[in-house]
């Protein structure tokens, strides 16, 4: 039994991996074989073979835990005592949690707007130019690497060395400050500015997503619309403002809401760059800290539920906009 749980050598790990995949294939194969065998088997039996395993996994791994978490948010730190809304009261009344909420608000407002704006302008500017492919790949690349990797890259940009004779700055941003004669800064230490420096990292990561989706939308604008506007003498900034932007409105909404949801759940950037210290924590990071570092399961559960509740209006807005777009069509 232990062989299947603890693998410490490379060979053992790969063997376990192959075993897991084969086990999965064998189980699924058996199920499909069983529902396919008898002739004239009712449809629902076949369907159960196809979707049963999925529904079982979703039930045990998603629905049950979500319900459990909502229940747990009304209990104390180890789940032994019912405390009503106390955990929620803590989140909304205590000073350090209010700062967490404020930070989260800043993230969710600034990141989607700036990301979408930058992605849109860039997609518009490089559209159908000679360098389009390369220009887009450069901005897209941060999306392929992990948020952890991106955070390390930017931590190095923000790196600070004491301002003493003989000590040279090794962080790019502080070096630039020194070049223009400003004292080097500890970018990540002081609230609230440190939150803005972290937000920059998230924008840097997400801009590629916005650019790709919006670029596809721009290319889908019918030629005759652009043509007609040009014949009317519309050009440059006006073309962007009155033709491009209104034509891709549905794509803009999708990008804004998708980035907002991703941002709401952002954890990796804060965790890697500051660990939530210096007043930079956000709801998703505070959830991890409370649940798995402070072992306050009640409070952690309340923060997770809060995250869930905050996602809902964004999705509702998205669905409403999609409906409207379909009605117009």
């Amino acid at each position: 039994m232990q062989w299947f749980l603890d693998a410490s050598t490379t060979g053992h790990k790969f063997a376990l991996m192959v075993f897991a995949i084969l086990l999965f294939a064998a189980v699924m194969g058996l199920i499909l074989f069983a529902v396919d065998r008898p002739k004239r088997v009712p449809n629902w039996v076949v369907a159960a073979g196809f979707v049963g395993p999925t529904l079982l996994l979703l039930g045990v791994g998603l629905v049950y835990p979500a319900v459990e978490t909502v229940r747990g948010s009304f209990y104390n730190r180890d789940g032994s005592e019912f405390v009503g809304l106390d955990n929620y009261a803590t989140v909304f009344s205590e000073d350090n949690f209010q700062r967490v909420l404020l930070n989260t608000f800043l993230w969710v407002v600034l990141v989607p707007l700036l990301t979408t704006g930058l992605g849109l302008v860039y997609a518009y500017l490089v559209d159908r130019t000679r360098f389009e492919k390369l220009a887009k790949a450069l901005v897209f690349l941060p999306l392929a690497i992990s948020m952890v990797g991106a955070s390390v890259i930017w931590k190095f940009v923000y790196e600070y060395r004491p301002d003493q004779p003989g000590v040279r700055q090794i962080g790019l941003l502080n070096q630039l400050l020194v070049l223009i004669g400003v004292e080097p800064q500890q970018f990540l230490l002081n609230w609230p500015s440190n939150t803005f420096y972290l937000i920059v990292v998230m924008i840097w990561i997400q801009a590629g997503f916005a650019m790709t989706v919006l670029s596809a939308a721009i290319k889908a604008i019918p030629d005759d619309v652009v043509e007609a506007a040009r014949l009317d003498g519309v050009g440059g900034v006006q073309m962007f403002r009155y033709v491009t932007v209104p034509s891709i409105r549905p794509a803009l909404v999708v990008v804004l809401t998708t980035v907002a949801i991703t941002t709401l759940k952002v954890f990796d950037v804060v965790r890697t760059m500051t660990g939530g210290q210096f007043g930079t924590s956000v709801v998703a990071n505070e959830f991890y800290t409370q649940a798995f570092r402070q072992f306050n399961f009640g409070l952690g559960a309340a923060l997770a539920v809060l995250l869930f509740v905050l996602v809902i209006p964004i999705i509702a807005y998205n669905v409403r906009q999609l409906r409207l777009a379909e009605e117009i069509r």
Binding site: T54, L55, L58, P65, A66, G72, Y288, A304, L307, F308
Partner: peptide, 27 residues
């Protein structure tokens, strides 16, 4: 495959996309 409850189940699975994984981690 046509089977009873297909549409409801599909919508339910679709809706599960909104559940943040944080909500599931402790349990």
């Amino acid at each position: 495959i046509k089977f009873p409850g297909r549409n409801i189940l599909f919508v339910a699975v679709f809706a599960l996309q909104v559940v943040p994984i944080q909500v599931t981690l402790i349990p």
